[in-house]
Design a protein around this nucleic acid. Structure first.
Lengths: 212, 212
DNA sequence: GTCTATATGAAGATAGAC
DNA sequence: GTCTATCTTCATATAGAC
């Protein structure tokens, strides 16, 4: 099945209230219970709509799932933009701002739920992993790489491979608790500031040209 | 359902050839297609056994899944032990050895498949996330923390929080590609050595007492 | 313990009226 | 476009013979 074309053909339809109801209900149920454990009956009930209405708007369960995921990826991408006034800041506060917004975004319930869903179903929908990666983690990584490129051009950091350093920095931020959160284990958000400071301090120790 | 007790009650039975066949077949199918997409019929066919035989050994599909997951977690734990002669090495080569074995273990198809499966089903089986975490990532983290504690006692590194530093180190190793691999995107294992070297270099730059 | 055959129920999808 | 009612398929689980 070509999910993209299926999705786009649905999207090209006129705006419709029930269509949104269905997408919202499906989103909530897919995210909460996963693809396999969510029935079309449950979605219809949650959306306060008949099953036939769902099938009038979507070609089937898989297409509905694809539409929900695409929409959710777009929403997340919209929240992940890095501000462009970072170059005015010194290295350390700029990295700290990146780190904190990264942690907030990555550990939001929205991001975690979507990531769980995509990981779970990426075997069934192979292109889903790519779409999600490009929408969220890949997009953020590209932003950080661009920032590091700028800092290197300004001579404030010294490194060969900005992509490697950016991946290392974001990985250090995720640390162990990203995995914990993904597995549904408790994560204490109160430590995020300290986590960010530690990751920034490590980055500075390795790559900064002058003591910051 | 109490998965642990269910599992243990099954385990206490006598060894049985068909029982192993069932577990092996279920393991392969669950890992390949996920819980929801794997039918008991398929498991029976793969194990060359009748469905009734499966139900003679396991209380149902959920119990079978629990048994498979527990067994797989135990197998992974057994491969994750860190050698205890690390203290004889200097900091940098010791960390490099830890890093490489970590990357090999974490990016093995076995680990990735199991992690995907657990992430997918941790909503349905809440205790599964805890069991998996303790068996693999938590176990490895504890080993690294123990090593860092030893290095700190020897005065070779300087840091307040070994747990934080260990999580940061392992996170930096995972970088972005662990997520990529989890989403089914291609990962180039040829870069693992360079990845390990970079993460070690960063750790040394931040925490080592004397230049290594 | 193991099999064949079957009961039971759930879920995806559709027909046809309005 | 939307609904009610239904069709069809398939998966879990079990009954009963050997």
């Amino acid at each position: 099945m070509d999910m993209t074309s299926t999705y786009l053909s649905s999207e090209s339809g006129v705006h419709c209230r029930k269509r949104e109801q269905v997408l919202d209900a499906a989103r909530q149920l897919f995210i909460t219970h996963g693809y396999g454990a969510t029935s079309m009956d449950a979605i219809a009930a949650e959306a306060d709509v008949s099953k036939a209405t769902i099938y009038a708007h979507h070609d089937g369960k898989e297409a509905l799932f694809a539409a929900v995921t695409h929409r959710e990826c777009r929403r997340i991408t919209a929240r992940m933009a890095i501000p462009d006034d970072l170059e005015a800041l010194a290295l350390r506060p700029a990295l700290t701002r990146i780190a904190r917004s990264f942690l907030d975004a990555v550990f939001s319930n929205q991001s975690l739920s979507l990531l769980r869903m995509v990981v779970a179903e990426s075997a069934r929908f192979p292109e889903l992993g790519r779409i999600f990666y490009d929408s969220a983690p890949g997009y953020t990584l590209a932003n950080v790489i661009a920032y590091l490129d700028g800092m290197r051009a300004l001579g404030r950091i010294q490194l060969d491979d900005c992509e490697q350093a950016a991946a290392q920095f974001l990985g250090a931020l995720r640390g162990d608790i990203h995995l914990r959160a993904l597995l549904g284990l408790p994560v204490d958000a109160a430590n995020f500031d300290a986590l960010a400071d530690e990751a920034v301090a490590t980055f500075v120790a390795r790559y900064a040209v002058a003591p910051q």
